[in-house]
Write a protein that binds this DNA or RNA. Structure first.
Lengths: 202, 202
DNA sequence: TGATACCTACAGAATTGTAGGTAGAGATGC
DNA sequence: GCATCTCTACCTACAATTCTGTAGGTATCA
């Protein structure tokens, strides 16, 4: 009842649209249309209305990210490069997680208490796992850096920025440019550095 | 007339809000309130309405970015690190340029022709200058990489992601964490790489 | 006296939310 | 075996508000 099949369809559609476009850019009509029902029928499954729907699916989405990132790391060898690429592959397969929009546009539009809670969740789900991954790699002696928190955030922004590449741009001039490849390229670049070195560090 | 003082105030307020929150999350009332007038008065300065206002200020903003980035590079020594940091400093001083939101939320909400044009402009203003900067550094032998286009995009995403750090988070535990410092840290990390090397490459 | 920069008032559409109704599936009483 | 009862998942209709855009008026200044 509280988690029926029909309700899940509503949450799925809402999650997809809200995460793609943001709170204000999605109407209840959009969500209802996506699953072929009338907007008023949404209230049957989510009596709390738009804001509660947004909060619920955002929480759900963040929880999924936390688990997805954890699983990606757990299923990889103990190696920063492999782990980061696994995380990136998982992130690229998801709808974009636009934290800039979340912080600057979505959060100011909802109840401040909830906004604060969601911001915390976002940090815990997205930044912390990456931060932990990097710290462990540092402990293993694989990498060396003083501000791994900052690096974790930058890494995330770098990977997510790939979602800003329009789909058409990927097939240009016969180059089968793939988002996963791009993410791997970026990770290799961050790990190895761009500066030219005469002795190649593999 | 076409570029009066009052009109500039309208464009400034609109640019700030639109770039911060996105097209759908900003109402004409918000913009008018920002400069202390009624929403209907906006039509005196921008008869084209909301969509044309958005397009105009987005163009303006992108043009400013193109110029600001070019100026930052021009006023720096011929050195990737210095140039990238100058660009980053300029970007950090601007309102966030959320390309993910632009592509996935703002562009689908406006006329497709204009959306395509703005997307081109965004690429020209943001990615291309960075790409050119990197190619020149490569020509000078400072850096070495095969996919500088991808790197340029990732670099941008990395720097812009700093705008997702909530202002309160910057003053935590007495650490005067500054957005500019964070950007510099990220640039150093990308140039030098995170991998531990026993001979320090300065 | 005319241009500029505003204003009030309002129309029309979109958006969120409420009230109450219905069709069908499955359980229950007799 | 079948009438009925209840629950789920919708529906239509509409109220309240917000948002965009229009029409026309007014104050100020050169």
């Amino acid at each position: 009842m509280l988690n029926s099949d029909a309700r899940q369809r509503v949450l799925d559609a809402a999650e997809k649209l809200f995460m793609e476009r943001g709170y204000r850019a999605v109407t209840l009509k959009d969500i209802a249309a996506q699953i072929g029902i009338r907007h008023a029928s949404l209230y049957h499954h989510v009596p709390g209305g738009k804001q509660e729907l947004f909060i619920e699916v955002t929480e759900r989405n963040l929880a999924r990210h936390r688990e997805g990132i954890a699983a990606a790391i757990a299923n990889s060898p103990q190696d920063v490069r492999a782990q980061l690429k696994a995380v990136a592959d998982w992130l690229i397969a998801q709808p974009p997680m636009d934290l800039i929009r979340m912080v600057n546009s979505d959060m100011p539009a909802i109840d401040p208490r909830q906004a604060w809670r969601l911001s915390q969740m976002a940090s815990d789900a997205m930044i912390e796992p990456l931060h932990a991954l990097l710290k462990q790699a540092q402990a293993r002696g694989e990498i060396a850096h003083d501000d791994l928190g900052v690096i974790a955030g930058g890494l995330l922004g770098m990977i997510e920025s790939i979602h800003a590449v329009p789909t058409e741009a990927l097939h240009q001039r016969g180059i089968p440019l793939d988002r996963h490849d791009m993410a791997h390229t970026l990770i290799d670049a961050l790990l190895d550095g761009l500066m030219r070195r005469d002795e190649p560090t593999t």
